[in-house]
Lab assay of single mutants.
Amino acid sequence: FDIYVVTADYLPLGAEQDAITLREGQYVEVLDAAHPLRWLVRTKPTKSSPSRQGWVSPAYLDRRL
């Protein structure tokens, strides 16, 4: 999967189903980028939180090589 970094805090609107909150600087794996406005991502697990999966706007993501 492609690795992206979150460029700004992402707080989903209440109406968005299956969306997750992301923090600036967080790394995520993009699982599904087929839709231009919503990408399915999975967060990297940390010592304090397990990995999470949900939909985010790709405008908040920047690809890492």
Rank of each mutant, 00 (worst) to 15 (best):
T43A: 04
K44S: 10
D62V: 14
A19C: 09
A59E: 13
V6N: 00
L61P: 01
I3K: 04
W39K: 00
Y10P: 02
T7H: 05
P12W: 07
Y27H: 09
D18A: 06
R23S: 09
T46M: 07
S57N: 15
S57C: 09
V6L: 04
D18M: 07
Q53G: 03
A15D: 15
L61S: 00
V56Q: 01
G25S: 02
V6H: 00
L31I: 12
Y60R: 02
F1M: 09
L40G: 00
S57R: 03
A15Q: 12
L13E: 14
V28D: 00
Q26T: 11
L65Q: 13
T43F: 05
A59S: 11
A33T: 09
V28E: 00
V41P: 00
A19P: 06
R23A: 08
R64A: 15
Q26S: 06
S49A: 11
T7N: 11
V30G: 00
A33Q: 12
P50R: 06
A8Q: 12
T46F: 07
V30F: 01
E29K: 05
A59N: 10
R63E: 08
L31P: 00
I20N: 02
L31H: 02
H35K: 05
Y10D: 02
R52Q: 14
I20F: 13
L31F: 02
E16L: 08
G25D: 02
T43P: 02
R38S: 07
I20A: 03
R64Q: 13
P50Y: 04
G54I: 09
L31G: 00
I3L: 11
V5D: 01
P36D: 09
G25M: 02
L13S: 15
G25K: 02
D2Q: 11
W55S: 02
Q53P: 03
D9P: 05
S51W: 07
P58A: 06
L22N: 00
Y10C: 06
V6S: 02
I20L: 12
V6M: 03
Y27V: 13
D62C: 13
R38L: 10
A19Q: 11
R63N: 10
V30H: 00
D2T: 09
A8I: 08
V28F: 02
D32M: 06
T46C: 11
V5F: 10
G14P: 15
Y4I: 02
G54P: 00
Y4G: 01
L40K: 04
V56N: 00
A34G: 11
E16V: 08
S48Q: 11
P12H: 06
Y27A: 06
E16S: 09
W55H: 03
R63I: 13
A15N: 15
D32L: 07
F1G: 10
L13Y: 10
R63T: 08
P45D: 09
W39N: 00
I3P: 03
D32I: 08
A8M: 13
L11Q: 11
R52K: 15
G54N: 02
A19T: 09
W55T: 03
L13A: 12
S49Q: 14
Q17L: 12
I3E: 08
A34M: 10
P45F: 05
E29M: 10
T21I: 13
P50L: 06
V56T: 04
E24L: 10
T43Y: 05
T46Y: 07
D32V: 07
V6K: 00
K44M: 15
V30D: 00
R63L: 15
R38W: 10
D18C: 11
L65R: 11
G54F: 10
I20R: 02
F1I: 08
V30Q: 00
F1T: 08
A19N: 09
G14S: 13
D2R: 09
V56E: 01
S57E: 09
T7A: 06
D62T: 15
H35P: 03
A15T: 15
G54M: 08
L37K: 09
F1N: 09
P12I: 09
T21Q: 12
T7F: 04
P12D: 06
L40P: 00
A34T: 15
K47R: 11
V5W: 07
I3S: 05
D2I: 10
K47W: 10
V56M: 05
L40S: 01
W39F: 03
P58D: 01
T7G: 04
D62F: 08
P12F: 07
Y10H: 07
T21W: 14
K47P: 14
L31W: 02
V30E: 00
L40A: 01
Y27G: 03
E24R: 15
P58S: 08
V6T: 04
K47M: 12
S49F: 10
T21V: 12
T43K: 01
T21K: 09
I20S: 02
G14L: 13
D18G: 14
G25Y: 02
